[in-house]
Write a protein that binds this DNA or RNA. Structure first.
Length: 274
DNA sequence: CTCACACTTCACCAATGGTC
DNA sequence: GACCATTGGTGAAGTGTGAG
């Protein structure tokens, strides 16, 4: 029955990584509950999540993620007729706290830039900051995707879009590329031979390391994206354009950044004005 | 040979993105 | 806007490369 669930989910198009996560969550749940599937009730699920939150100190986001997996599993059992009722159906979604995530300040950005030790890392920072791309998009990018101040990137689902480089990014990127001696088509490659394509984890650890050295807390690539969005909205760029720039399918996603911009104004007002 | 470095992989957790 | 899929982030351990 377990296997049928995974097979069925696989057929419905879930990726292997998602299924691995499902497997991990379910295994943990059943190991702890020690009950037959038919005897599990709604309170078992509630209790399990509460227990895990207290003992393992997992966040609400994680609790909700695990609840979703359990729902997916038990609701499937019901739909297939293995269970009369899905015990997970009635468990309410776990409400999240809203957190303000800060963009980089100008000073933090400059500190990061100054800590770089080679042309590649500087170019990566400038490209991230001028385009607001996802790391995965930068990783997939090739040299030939650059045309003047335009960079064509491939977002989720292979969707293509054009992002724009500012003069600083064009300069540092050109310097980096002219300096290279390999013939890899990738836009960014390893510093050492055989100079293969840099992966997302490589960029992440590099940014993280720069953050430590520069004394910039919580430095990671995605924060550049947030910074671009927040700055653009703060400076009055229409939300539709910001949406296009970041490659969001749904403007709802963009409006989240707008909301956080408002929250930042409020927080800063408290801090500096009152 | 060995050691530091620069990633890569793994396992897990957190967050974003998409759809009905 | 509830609900669900997928991507992103992170710390620790692992690995290949090249300098000394």
């Amino acid at each position: 029955m377990y296997n049928m669930f995974f097979v069925s989910k696989k057929v419905s198009g879930l990726s292997m990584e998602t299924l691995n996560y499902y497997g991990y969550v379910l295994q943990r749940f059943f190991h702890e509950i020690q009950k037959d599937i038919k005897n599990i009730d709604t309170n078992d699920i509630r209790y399990y999540l509460a227990e895990r939150a207290m003992r393992d100190n997992i966040s609400k986001v994680t609790q909700d993620n695990e609840l979703r997996v359990l729902k997916s599993f038990f609701n499937w059992q019901q739909e297939e007729g293995y269970l009369q009722h899905s015990p997970a159906r009635k468990v309410a979604k776990i409400k999240q706290d809203y957190r303000i995530k800060k963009p980089y300040s100008e000073i933090e950005l400059e500190k990061l830039r100054r800590e770089t030790t080679n042309k590649r890392d500087l170019a990566i920072i400038d490209v991230l900051y001028s385009t607001g791309c996802r790391v995965s998009e930068i990783v997939k990018a090739n040299r030939e995707d650059i045309a003047g101040d335009e960079l064509t990137v491939y977002g989720k689902g292979g969707k293509e879009r054009v992002v724009y480089l500012n003069p600083k990014a064009i300069l540092t990127l050109t310097e980096y590329i002219n300096d290279r001696e390999d013939d890899n088509e990738a836009l960014f490659v390893h510093l050492r031979r055989p100079h293969s394509r840099l992966k997302k984890e490589g960029i992440e650890s590099m940014i993280c390391e720069l953050g430590k050295r520069a004394g910039v807390k919580k430095a990671h690539p995605h924060r550049f994206r947030r910074t671009v969005a927040t700055n653009a909205l703060n400076r009055g760029m229409p939300m539709e354009e910001v949406q296009q720039l970041l490659g969001h399918n749904d403007i709802q996603t963009t409006s989240i950044y707008a909301k956080s911009t408002q929250e930042n104004v409020k927080a800063d007002h408290k801090k500096y004005v009152v």
